[in-house]
């Protein structure tokens, strides 16, 4: 083939190549774009760790409060405290009952969490902090059972498993309601708010400097900021 014939063939080919995608523009073919591949059951099983309120997704296994005490002492207490009261500044995970309507609410597994799954799913994916997803299923059931025990939700004989899942009654299960801002805060939809003489003269009632908790800024101040 001569050089020019080659070039001509190339032009024709590239025109064809250009025409096809132009038709596909922004549209999936009948069965999608055909990008990626099917996820295998084994791949999914390794990452599919979420658990719902009804227990769907909970793994096989079980753990007693007694076994959980040991897991907790070895892997959790250093941060969360022997009784879940918090060691230093780490989150408190137990007690706090009856504080939610007070000036200093203490939100814990017992006082605030609405579902067993909310704590089980979280510990499974994220704790111990710094060694996530290291607990075996039985350890996981056990340590969550122990957290429930620390919060007076189960007694010291309790064994947590898929079978006993629905027996756990979380004290604050009824403590939540769906976003109602559009009704309870309807007054804020006010497209023509007051522009003049909207209030009495404003008086300063509080100052950040009095509180004095702002980090110091030692960087030189420049006129350009």
């Amino acid at each position: 083939m001569s050089k020019s014939a080659n070039a001509a063939a190339f032009v024709v080919l590239s025109m064809l190549a250009l025409a096809a995608p132009a038709l596909a523009q922004g549209k999936a073919q009948k069965h999608g774009f055909g990008i990626g591949r099917a996820a295998t059951a084994a791949e999914i099983a390794g990452w599919d760790i979420d658990v719902r309120p009804d227990g769907q997704g909970a793994p096989p296994g079980s753990g007693s409060v007694k076994a959980g005490e040991e897991v907790y002492a070895g892997k959790c207490a250093a941060c969360h405290g022997e009784f879940g009261e918090s060691a230093g500044r780490w989150p408190q995970v137990a007690q706090g009952k009856g504080t939610l309507a007070s000036h200093d609410p203490v939100k814990t597994v017992g006082s605030y969490y609405p579902y067993l799954s909310s704590v089980f799913d979280y510990v499974r994916r994220s704790m111990p902090f710094g060694d996530a997803q290291s607990l075996g299923n039985d350890e996981l059931y056990a340590v969550v059972a122990y957290l429930l025990f620390l919060n007076d939700i189960v007694d010291d004989k309790f064994v947590l498993s898929k079978e006993t899942w629905s027996k756990v009654k979380m004290p604050n299960a009824g403590g939540f309601f769906a976003d109602d801002r559009e009704t309870s805060e309807k007054a804020f939809w006010n497209p023509k708010p007051c522009m003049t003489n909207c209030r009495s003269d404003a008086k300063i009632t509080g100052r950040a400097r009095v509180i004095d908790v702002t980090p110091e800024d030692k960087t030189p101040r420049r006129g350009v900021d």
Binding site: D50, R52, P53, L100, P105, D121, Y122, G175, F176, F177
Partner: peptide, 25 residues
């Protein structure tokens, strides 16, 4: 799923001790 992040956190506790959830916007 009612995960920890949408129950224990990111819910808005009101003065009466009840909390709004799914306050996404």
């Amino acid at each position: 799923w009612e995960t920890r992040e949408e129950t224990a956190k990111y819910t808005d506790l009101l003065a009466n001790g009840k909390a709004r959830k799914h306050t996404f916007v």
